[in-house]
């Protein structure tokens, strides 16, 4: 290693506290809100038994049953804005409490794009290392030039063909890691227009998973710190911290693993999330920190990132 004797030459990576599992109790989009508080209550009623199952299974896995489980809830304030925090947050908390659920952390979806001045989505985009189709022997246009990420090879398109050359014939797309047959997935990461860049829902959801796994760093520091808010929510979404800590005695927001209890309508989004996450290169140093901690706790973590993420679809 180059022996840098100067401060700016050294790389320092901070580590953060971790729970065993981060359980997402739901996503709230405009249409859920429009359906009224009953819809939310029904949703929490369905989620409650699954949270209990997760709790029991982790208590069995940890010495003395001291499982650290944190819960979180995500509100969309990125694609559409509705209501205000001082109106909406108490409503969510009430609906949860009626089902004996405690929401430890509340997050805004726009935090996954940018939080506290850190462009998290860009951070993750730069760490995409696309799954190379067989025959990739060199550099290829990275996703940040095209805005799309696939799990295989696309069908050829008739583009800038040459005159008097045979026309390109249709060929099927193929999945790189196919087993006999392909399930080809091509995910739009963002689109640009005159108002600037809009990150796609699956891309922000992938950032959300990485945040919950505590695997992101900005210049070596942890990018989003939950901020405790005791009642009195602001009237403007921009004034609400990206991640709010609602429960004083909650275990850490980030965790070794994540579990998301979601409506089946998120199935496609989450397939896209896994397609993205299986192509994100997480800092080796951060991975080592997490690994050595889990080993200290006698916990065996899955080697691959996507295997640390699980779901219940309702």
């Amino acid at each position: 290693m180059t022996s840098f004797s100067e401060v700016t030459a050294e790389r320092q990576i901070k580590s953060g506290p971790l729970s065993h599992v981060s359980v997402e109790l739901g996503h709230l989009y405009m249409e859920d809100f429009q359906a009224g508080p009953d819809r939310l209550r029904q949703q929490f009623a369905m989620v409650a038994p699954w949270l209990e199952t997760v709790r029991r299974s982790w208590q069995n896995r940890t010495p003395g049953g001291r499982a650290r489980i944190s819960t979180c809830f995500l509100i969309d304030d990125y694609f559409s804005r509705f209501s205000t925090p001082d109106e909406l947050v108490p409503m969510i908390l009430d609906a949860a409490a009626e089902n004996d659920l405690v929401i430890d952390y509340l997050a805004r979806e726009s935090a996954c794009a940018e939080a506290d001045g850190v462009k998290l989505a860009k951070l993750v985009e730069d760490r995409l290392v696309p799954d190379p189709p067989p025959g990739t022997h060199s550099w290829r246009p990275p996703p940040h030039e095209t805005g799309w990420l696939a799990n295989g090879t696309r069908s050829p398109v008739a583009g800038a063909g040459q005159a008097m050359k045979p026309q390109i014939r249709w060929e099927p797309p193929t999945q790189n890691a196919k087993r006999g047959h392909s399930i080809f997935v091509d995910v739009e990461l963002w689109n640009d227009d005159n108002r600037g860049r809009t990150w796609s829902c699956p891309f922000l959801a992938a950032v959300w998973q990485l945040l919950r796994l505590g695997l992101l760093r900005n210049e070596g520091r942890l990018p989003v710190q939950p901020v405790q808010v005791d009642g009195g929510f602001p009237r403007d979404w921009d004034e609400l911290p990206p991640v709010v800590k609602l429960n004083k005695s909650a275990t850490p927001f980030s965790a070794y693993t994540t579990m998301s209890v979601l409506s089946t309508r998120f199935l496609q989004v989450e397939l896209a999330v896994r397609t993205i996450l299986s192509q994100v290169s997480v800092d080796e140093e951060v991975l080592k920190q997490v690994l050595s901690r889990s080993t200290d706790e006698d916990l065996r973590l899955e080697e691959e990132l996507v295997d640390r993420i699980s779901y219940v679809f309702l």
């Binding site: 180059t2 700016t8 030459a9 790389r11 985009e125 067989p134 990739t136 070596g220 990018p223």
Partner: peptide, 25 residues
């Protein structure tokens, strides 16, 4: 994004970008 360029100044100014990965098959 999110990674600093490392620099040393002696005996000559030398700077190195963060490591970048490229997938091949």
């Amino acid at each position: 994004a999110g990674e600093r360029v490392r620099m040393s100044r002696r005996p000559i100014v030398y700077a190195v970008s963060p490591d970048l990965l490229t997938g091949v098959d």
